[in-house]
Design a protein around this nucleic acid. Structure first.
Lengths: 206, 206
DNA sequence: CAATACTAGAGAGTGATGCTATCTAATGCA
DNA sequence: TGCATTAGATAGCATCACTCTCTAGTATTG
């Protein structure tokens, strides 16, 4: 497959495909001469992945590149790789100063209430802290009750996810990293729909 | 409070506050002369809200403006207002062509499986369709089993949310619209943490 | 074999976005 | 009196995700 066929197969402008090549998001094809290279299905799949990550998931190209690099070359430690993937996901939060004895008090309290491990080195801990601080600043603080409710349900979802994780380590990393990122828009859409459904039923009941 | 005090109170550069004023995200203060106006707590709160929406929630200023306009001036129909709020939230999806008899097949199937109302006019339906199409294209399709699992848990969260909705209509709209948008980063952070927690426990168990 | 189409690779240009800086004329405050 | 501050307008800037253009070489087709 030549590059124009690849662009067609992915439904993208040729210039965009070239751009992804230049930016290192898409691996190059096999060069057959100074001005020719051939591409295959793996390139089509990769382009679809790039569009999924930069589109619905809302990653910048730099973030997408980091995620894709992890999928391409995951360590054998699922836990560490997952941590690195989460660091690449938005929102990007400023690092805590090293000398702060308790940099994430809200997140710590939340995780304690949930009975989950609190480890300040996790990016998601900083993300949770910043999200909680932010809703607080906006005047809609989250009660511990609500946090526990959310946390419990999401933990059930996480259990479900991990139960279905492939056994083979490489596949497991890919599943977990991509599943975390790619399924997020689905989750948000489902919550919005659930809100509307519940609201509609209440409206009718009035 | 003068504008410089407002900027200090919100922790923002003066130029940025002026910018939000210009762009209509922040209501102007009460003019006391040709070159003076006074601002109050409502302006501080609004600035915090703007930062929450454009920061962690990841809205563009245009999207934030739409959400804030709904909060400022909600209709008395909670259901319709919520619908308009969801339209303003990312991801923005292309409108379906009017003559397509079944524009959102994946979303329709999902909602039927969940026993929720399917109404193609909802923005969240289009968002769900696009999210599902996108994970499918990326090679990680979502099984109906998973969809039902996710949907059920999120519906429980939505029920929880709506049970705590204020009675007064104006407050109810604000609560629902802002709660939908502002709590999303919290939900995502909690899921990521749950993934890590579950993964860590499995790793140890091996 | 000649004309045309296509390609790799690189550089520059583009439009949107979210600020940030500068300027002017007027006013406040010490 | 004089320095600081303000409203309001305009212009500038950095980033991002493309998009266009160009060159030199290669493939294809009639």
């Amino acid at each position: 497959m030549r590059i124009s066929a690849l662009a067609d197969a992915a439904g993208l402008p040729l210039a965009t495909v070239k751009y992804y090549l230049r930016e290192g998001l898409l691996h190059s094809g096999v060069a057959t001469s100074a001005t020719q290279a051939t591409y295959d299905e793996s390139h089509v799949r990769r382009l679809r992945m790039i569009r999924a990550l930069t589109g619905p998931v809302g990653l910048s190209m730099q973030q997408a590149r980091q995620i894709l690099a992890l999928v391409d070359d995951p360590g054998d430690d699922l836990y560490a790789t997952l941590g690195r993937a989460v660091s690449a996901l938005p929102p990007t939060v400023p690092e805590a100063s090293a000398d702060d004895p308790d940099p994430y008090p809200r997140a710590r309290a939340a995780l304690e209430a949930l009975g989950q491990v609190y480890d300040p080195r996790f990016a998601a801990v900083a993300q949770l802290e910043s999200a909680l601080a932010s809703v607080e600043a906006a005047g809609m603080p989250i009660s511990e009750e609500r946090l526990v409710e959310y946390g419990r349900r999401l933990r059930e979802i996480a259990e479900f996810d991990l139960e279905r994780m492939p056994r083979e380590p490489h596949a497991a990393v890919e599943y977990t990293v991509l599943g975390t990122a790619l399924y997020e828009p689905v989750l948000l859409a489902l919550r919005r729909l659930a809100h509307q459904d519940v609201a509609a039923r209440r409206e009718l009941a009035d």
